[in-house]
Each structure stands twice: as structure tokens, then as C-alpha cells.
Design a protein around this nucleic acid. Sequence first.
RNA 1: GGAGGAGUGCCCGAGUGGCUAAAGGGGGCGGACUGUAAAUCCGCUGGCUAUGCCUACGUUGGUUCGAAUCCAACCUCCUCCA
Length: 422
Amino acid sequence: MLEAGKPATPLKSETLQVLLERGLVNQASDLEALDARLAEGPVTVYAGFDATAASLHVGHLMPLMTLRWMQKLGHRPIAVLGGGTTQVGDPSFRNEARPLLDELKIASNVSGIRRCIERLVSMDGDDGALLVDNAEWLTEFRFLEFLRDYGSQFTVNRMVTFESVKSRLDTQSPLTVLEFCYMMLQAVDFLELSRRYNCEMQIGGSDQWGNIVNGIELGRKADGRKLHGLTVPLLTTASGAKMGKTAAGAVWLHPEHLSPFVFWQFWRNTADADVGRFLRLFTELPMNEVERLSALEGHELNDAKKVLATQVTAIVHGPEEARKALEQGEALFGGAEELLEPTHVLPRIRLSEGLGLLELLVLVGFAGSNGEARRLVEGGGVRLNRQVVDDARRQITAGNLQADDRLALAVGKRRKALVGFD
RNA sequence: GGAGGAGUGCCCGAGUGGCUAAAGGGGGCGGACUGUAAAUCCGCUGGCUAUGCCUACGUUGGUUCGAAUCCAACCUCCUCCA
């Protein structure tokens, strides 16, 4: 185990050096052995993703960036979608059972998540990254067979020593057998992947540590293989809060859940204190450039934030979207107060049918309910075509459209929408 | 197995029959200031077809004109005894 940024001895592998200097390492199972193995040649490495939502969010960017770097350095990533394990629910560090999702919902989530991952790691070619769903093997097991083959490799004695389980037991919160067995499933995943794809390494969030260690131990007991594990740090902001939430919810990676421009804005609004760390973690700029940008002071740091936002957006949504987002951001805050392209398009009949301002705010996602929209309006935070509107009963009609036939809607300083009608 | 204490809104936490959609703080959002930052100050912070209605104080029933507040059972947590 090691603390980030403090290698005990000089590292032999470029891979580990890069991951460390980017700040992507929290702890590793056996750092020296892992370093030696990585220096030897390409490995196959996997990270698992729960299928609990239809898109990944910025928190997932840490393991994804790790896979991406490793692919760049010649290793082969496997992204494992938890189509099987999600049917059980990871109990780690939770005080109560997660609601279980049905298979149909999971299947649709899997396809959205696949889309997110594809942007970060290349799946092309024979040696491209693999995307596998653990439902493939987990759903095949029959109970007795599973107990015989794997149950014998785990001792309850060992399982209860894991922090994730211990906390539940210590506080006497109920931990069902179903949840308890989750770690077996994830361990079996690792074993299966090592057998099927010669996968030797797993990465995950720091909350996955126990699950990862279990897999490593299973590999050793069942097959006598040396497997490796690495966790990435928990993503927090400088103010200590868990990162990745905005007013509208999580910062999704899927463009259908969060537009590239809003995504860009999220990064543009990074607090000063986080800029350097985020540049290292979420961009691929060379370290000297990262350092130059982080050293900027005062309002010049805003330039570093734009670079950060544009770089991250380019990775997640592509360079074209990133360029457009930057352009839009510049225009919007450079005085134009106007988006370049409509962010939303509504049927024109809505204008004659009667469209309330509150309803419109909900439609474009600036408010989660009419009540919230009302509060925004009454608090003076809403502007229609650059003018503050504080009448919550305001109706939108054709007469409100600007010369360009559009409607400029803004909430606060940063949230802006341009609504077109056709 | 026995005795006592506790379970409140996104989180922490006050509240022991009507004045409680529920103090206070955190977080979040909006406003002012600024650099689309931080800090600070001010406001808002359950939903709705909205001078009213619905949902909400572990769960389910009950008492009462009226319950987060009283009673019963159940679930869960904490402390002490065996």
C-alpha cells in the first residue's frame, strides 16, 4: 500500500510513473510487484462499472482516465459492465440495501454506459479495449455449482474483516446474505477475466478496495496467479465536498443527459484551488504545461479554467463539441449574453396553446418543479431576453420572441438557454 | 434473555397534543460584491390544476375535534445487566 505521490523506491515502469504524477493512484495491492510487472510489458487491466444509471458521471472519469492512460502506454483495458452484479447491489459503505433494479432497466442502462466508455478508450482493432458484461458468466452459474467451485475458496472469517462489511456489522445494521455475497461475485469477475482474457490488474474507486483484494486472493487460491489491484482517489473539491453534483443533478458524461456546453461550463466553474489538480487528473496536457497553467494567478487563472474545460470536453464529447462549447462560452460571457445555437427546440403551437414561464423553466431543465421555478422567478434570478422577469404567472407568446425568432432564457449568471420554435 | 434510550426534511440536528411543511446549522440555488473563483453579506430551499389541496417526522394500526408529539404491535440502532 502506498500514499499517492510517495513512491518508496524509484519506479521502473513508465505506466506507474505517469499514473502517480497525474494523481490517479490512491493505493495499490503490491506496489513493487505491480511496478515490476508493468515494466515487463503490456498487461490487461479492467475496471468495473455499475449499471445503476443510464450514464456515467464525472466521478467515473478517474478510473476511465486511468484506463485511457494505460491504453496509451500499450496496455489493454477491459471495461466490465455490471449487468450481473447490479442485480445484486454493492453494499460497500452503505448503511442499507440498495433498491434492486430489474433486468430490463439494467439492460438499457448498460447501453448508455457503453456509449460513455467508448469515448474514453478505443475499442477499435484487434488489440482495442474490450467491453464485457459480467452478466455473461454470472447468470450462467447454478447455485450448487457456484457454492462448490467458489464458496470453498472464501472464508466468512476473512470476509467479515473487510471494512465495507465490518462497518455494517459493527453498527448491527442488517447485511443480507445477498449483499454479503456481492464481494464473491466481484472476485469471481476478476478470476473469470484473468482466465478468459489474461487480465492481471483491476482498478476501481477507493471504496472498491475490499472487493479488489478479494479478487486478488481468489486468483491466488484458485489458480495460483498473481493479480494486481489499484484504486483511484475519491474525487472531492477543495472545499471537501464530494464532487459531481450541480443544481440539475449529477454531471453526466452522456450528451443526452447533459449537453456538452453545460458540461464545459461545469469545468469552467472549477474553484481556483482545484484547477491544478483537475488539470492533472482530467486532461492529457504534458506536465510542464499543467504546471504553467496552475501557476497563473488572479483572473489569469480563468484562462487555465478554459483550457481545463475545453480539454476535458474534448476527451468526453470530442474536439468539435469542445470547440463549440468554448466559442459559446466566450461569446456568452464576453458580453454577447446570447447562445449561438438553440439549446432547445419546441413546437411552435406551444406558443398559441399558452406556455407559462414556469413550465418553460422546467422544460429546459433549469428547475426540477414548478415550485422551484417559481422561487427562481420570484427571487429575481430569471431573465427572458436579457430582462429580469419576476412575475411567476408570466405567459410566453409569439410576441416575446426576439428578432431571430428565438427566446433567450437565463437563470443566474451561468445557466443560459436559447429556445427555438418550429 | 432482562432494563433503559433512540429512529425527524439532501445531511446534521431541535421539537413531547393545535401557533409545525416542522427551530438552528451544513449543503444547494438566487441576489450583492468579484475574476463565470474564494471569502463575506442578503434571500430562497416538499409537491400541485394553489387564498386551497396533497405528501412528509422508522413501519402498521389505534386514541383524539386535532398527533412528529399519546397508546399498541413490529422493524432497526445505542447503552447497561445476564
